[in-house]
Design a protein around this nucleic acid. Structure first.
Ligand code: FES
Ligand code: FES
Lengths: 154, 154
DNA sequence: TGTAACAGGACTGCTTCGGTCCTGATTGCT
DNA sequence: AGCAATCAGGACCGAAGCAGTCCTGTTACA
């Protein structure tokens, strides 16, 4: 349980990569194929992730021929909870989100009504305190990141 | 994402019910059908949950004719993380936990290797601080909820 | 005008989960 | 001793969500 989806991890990878080129290089935006080549993630998948992130406002897009994507905020200003919420939907631990059973609304004695609220809030708080910059720091140490070194997935 | 399974919620419901046993009533243990009738959860499902909890040691079982289940620890000594780990497996946010594949190709360059560790640890810490007693308190007062009752771990 | 790149879906195969049921093993009671 | 109640443990199936791909516009630059 508490297994987050691969898409979320891809989102983190992509956004970290998106921040790697920002410091004043020739292009201020990066294209989906370029990021895919740099990260080793399949192009359609990375495109899907980028579109999702753009829809939620975590990254900004520039359409057209010389278009691409850009981070809306620096890494240290983006929390993990935002990324998870953007990719995997809102952080809801209980199943009462959908109207499977109507007894939850009318009765008021639903066992799951407010039970998981403290847990939910605690997780939300914990995830809000971690930024993408922290995750990059945690992942980099063993081998420094080399662009275009990725052996790709087999 | 971060949607915990219904089984986990059932486990909480069942364990809270298990603690409701009258101190000194006829049986010090409760049977699966009895708990199912008291909670409204289908009998096979509650039996499955109980068996899982018993396998992990969160509850103790008494076999035989007058058998049943009993909490191994009081509610305030059981954290939510234990229940989640018991029902849904270990709290692992990445997919590389099991040896489905040869782990990763090379752990040194794996992007997910240590990246989610701080997040994982933060969630674990947050969940460890909440006990079943806290969840019961949060769920019991549907109409008697007192604003100043929140323990609030801030 | 032509091309490069994003936008936003629809679609499908697959894994996992939720839920049920069956067959033993064990213990108390008659 | 025999019977009944109860747990133990797995097998099984259907449903749901997820991962991944692809297609058809729309926009902007050269
Ligand atoms: S299931 Fe929604 S309030 Fe209970
Ligand atoms: S997925 Fe297991 S180490 Fe990367």
């Amino acid at each position: 349980m508490l297994r987050l989806s691969k898409l979320t991890d891809y989102a983190v990878v992509v956004m970290v990569r998106l921040a790697e080129v920002s410091p004043g290089s020739n292009p201020d935006v990066q294209t989906s194929p370029g990021i895919a080549a740099a990260t080793g993630v399949p192009e359609p998948t990375v495109a899907k992730v980028l579109k999702t992130l753009a829809a939620t406002g975590l990254v900004t897009s520039q359409r057209g021929a010389r278009g691409g994507y850009r981070l809306a905020r620096p890494l240290h200003a983006i929390s993990v909870s935002e990324v998870i919420a953007a990719v995997d939907g809102p952080i809801a631990l209980v199943a009462c989100v959908d109207g499977s059973l109507n007894e939850c609304e009318s009765q008021g004695l639903c066992p799951v009504r407010g039970r998981w609220d403290p847990v939910n809030d605690a997780i939300e708080r914990a995830l809000s305190g971690i930024t993408l910059a922290d995750m990059r720091e945690a992942a980099v140490p063993p081998l420094f990141r080399v662009p275009a070194l990725m052996p790709a997935a087999e």
